[in-house]
């Protein structure tokens, strides 16, 4: 049978590694669009069967007698090379799925909190959650057509951010823009250990500049 073939199980000398990044934010803010913009595959969709453990105490009306339900989990993938991947997981929007955030956040590199300036309060729970967990995050303000371009300093105040988490303006439909969000997050989360620094904070008041290097 095929599974007994003698093909080597690892590729190259370094072990395979998958790096997890969370995409959080309120319902309809563009999480799935962002994942779809940069993922090399159409966002994959899987479901988590919830036992009673996962069903919150908040909303049991109408689900009496129901022992399982499902929550969709969408994720995208970026292959850096054979055996090194970035996985982008959209976090479930509903509050009663908070327990899934714990699992998603476990071992993650960091998170993108997508914000819509018309409904900034929708991203408060995500900001609170990542601050409490100590997981590095960047706030990405989705500047879609017609949205007023907000001053990141004002957004920082509105979110009561501690002044460390970067704020980037982005368009979740634009590849360069999403790349900028993710490179900002990666640099913020681990770059400091390797001598890389983010631009000064006021650098984020300008639209993201496209990387100069040829692709």
């Amino acid at each position: 049978m095929g599974y007994a073939a003698s093909e080597p199980a690892t590729t190259g000398t370094t072990p395979a590694m998958a790096i997890k990044i969370l995409i959080a934010g309120g319902f309809g803010v563009g999480k799935t669009t962002m994942v779809g913009t940069i993922s090399e595959i159409r966002p994959l969709h899987t479901e988590e069967l919830l036992s009673e453990r996962g069903v919150g105490v908040d909303d049991t009306s109408g689900v009496e007698g129901k022992t399982t339900t499902t929550v969709a989990l969408d994720f995208g993938r970026i292959t850096i090379r054979e055996g090194l991947w970035l996985y982008l997981f959209g976090t479930p929007g509903q509050d009663r799925f908070w327990f899934m955030w714990d699992e998603l956040a476990l071992g993650a590199l960091g998170a993108v909190v997508l914000a819509d300036t018309r409904r900034l309060q929708d991203c408060f729970p995500a900001v609170d959650y990542f601050e409490r967990r100590g997981l590095p995050f960047v706030v990405a303000v989705n500047c879609f057509d017609g949205a007023r371009r907000h001053d990141p300093a004002k957004i920082r105040r509105a979110l009561s951010l501690d002044g460390v988490a970067p704020i980037v303006l982005c368009d979740v439909r634009d590849l360069e823009s999403v790349k900028n969000v993710l490179t900002t997050l990666v640099t913020y989360a681990v770059g400091g250990s390797f001598g890389d620094r983010l631009p000064p904070r006021d650098g984020f008041t300008h639209p993201p500049a496209a990387p100069a290097r040829p692709s």
Binding site: I78, K179, T183, V186, S215
Partner: peptide
């Protein structure tokens, strides 16, 4: 590698 990979997309 990750930074370079992202920028090369």
């Amino acid at each position: 590698e990750v930074l370079h990979g992202l920028r090369s997309l």
